[in-house]
């Protein structure tokens, strides 16, 4: 139960929302799907003075093609990201990431923008965003800017979003034909956050490969494993990829789901598996 009072606004257009945000600054908390904000407010972990719901801003809910990019509105629900044909065709890694979030109800309500803005180290999208080279569009009443996914997370649940700013769109370069991708995560029980995530992309002809790792550091970590692809993915190459992931996970923390060492070891296993299955997927066409 939420016991602290707060003001509530539900603007129906983006400029209105940005104006409210400008006016109320740090007092205002944006509400998207509420799948993180609502539990946190209920538990008293956050106490918003004012909530601005974005749920009535239809113009923030879209997926469209723009030249070599896909543009995804921040309010697009996880279920729609998972099922969207454009995303399926040009950024399948993202669809996979979305389809593995929580459960049906969470996917029906939670949004891509809310999840990215929330920047939970264990959350699904960011490792994929990194691997995909996504750009995030931040808007405020004063203007807008674009931040590379790799520069977005500043620490545990802190991001590049400044007071008065809102994440409005995610831009993703379309994957070229022949790209392989694979999204792998380890969970304790279904519907729970991941212990470790590995989101891998191999470029056509195995020219390059990279793995976005999740929950092994305060933010997502990108590991470039292109150097280990060589001619074929033999055991040595896979071991080297695993080692690279293990090293990249040096900042892994311990929590109830797993200790730091286990996380690092799992980063090793899942990075290897993700790259392997991404190449398999590419080979299979």
């Amino acid at each position: 139960m939420i016991s602290q009072e707060f003001d509530f606004e539900a603007p129906s257009a983006l400029p209105e929302a940005l104006a409210l945000l400008a006016r109320h600054g740090d007092d205002a908390t944006l509400l998207s799907g509420g799948m993180s904000l609502m539990p946190m407010t209920t538990l008293g972990l956050v106490q918003p003075g004012m909530i601005i719901s974005l749920n009535h801003i239809a113009e923030l809910d879209y997926v469209r093609e723009d030249g070599n990019e896909l543009r995804i509105g921040a309010l697009t629900r996880h279920a729609d990201v998972a099922a969207d044909p454009l995303i399926g065709a040009h950024a399948a890694l993202l669809a996979e990431a979305a389809s593995l979030i929580g459960d049906v109800q969470v996917r029906n309500r939670g949004t891509i923008g809310g999840s990215i803005a929330h920047a939970d180290p264990a959350a699904n999208y960011l490792p994929a965003m990194l691997a995909l080279g996504a750009r995030l569009r931040l808007q405020s009443e004063a203007g807008e800017r674009s931040v590379e996914a790799k520069d977005f997370v500043k620490g545990i649940m802190t991001t590049a979003i400044e007071t008065g700013e809102m994440l409005t769109e995610i831009a993703i370069p379309k994957l070229a034909a022949g790209t392989g991708c694979s999204y792998q995560r380890l969970v304790r029980v279904e519907g729970n956050f991941a212990i470790v995530i590995a989101a891998a992309i191999t470029e056509p002809g195995r020219k390059a490969a990279r793995v976005g790792l999740g929950n092994v550091a305060p933010g997502p970590v990108l590991v470039d494993v292109s150097g280990h692809l060589g001619n074929g993915l033999d055991d040595a190459a896979l071991a080297a990829i695993g080692d690279a992931a293990f090293d990249a996970a040096a900042e892994a923390a311990s929590d109830l789901a797993g200790d730091a060492n286990y996380r690092r070891e799992m980063a090793r296993v899942f990075a290897r598996r993700a790259v392997q299955s991404a190449t398999d997927a590419a080979d299979a066409g």
Binding site: L31, G34, M38, P39, T42, Q105, N108, R109
Partner: peptide, 23 residues
């Protein structure tokens, strides 16, 4: 009350959601 159990599931605009976590 925190979106984990689904006992509060209802349909909102035709899709299931956890109504403990919707204002």
């Amino acid at each position: 009350g925190t979106g984990s159990c689904g006992a509060c599931t209802v349909m909102l605009d035709g899709r299931t959601v956890k109504s403990c976590s919707v204002l």
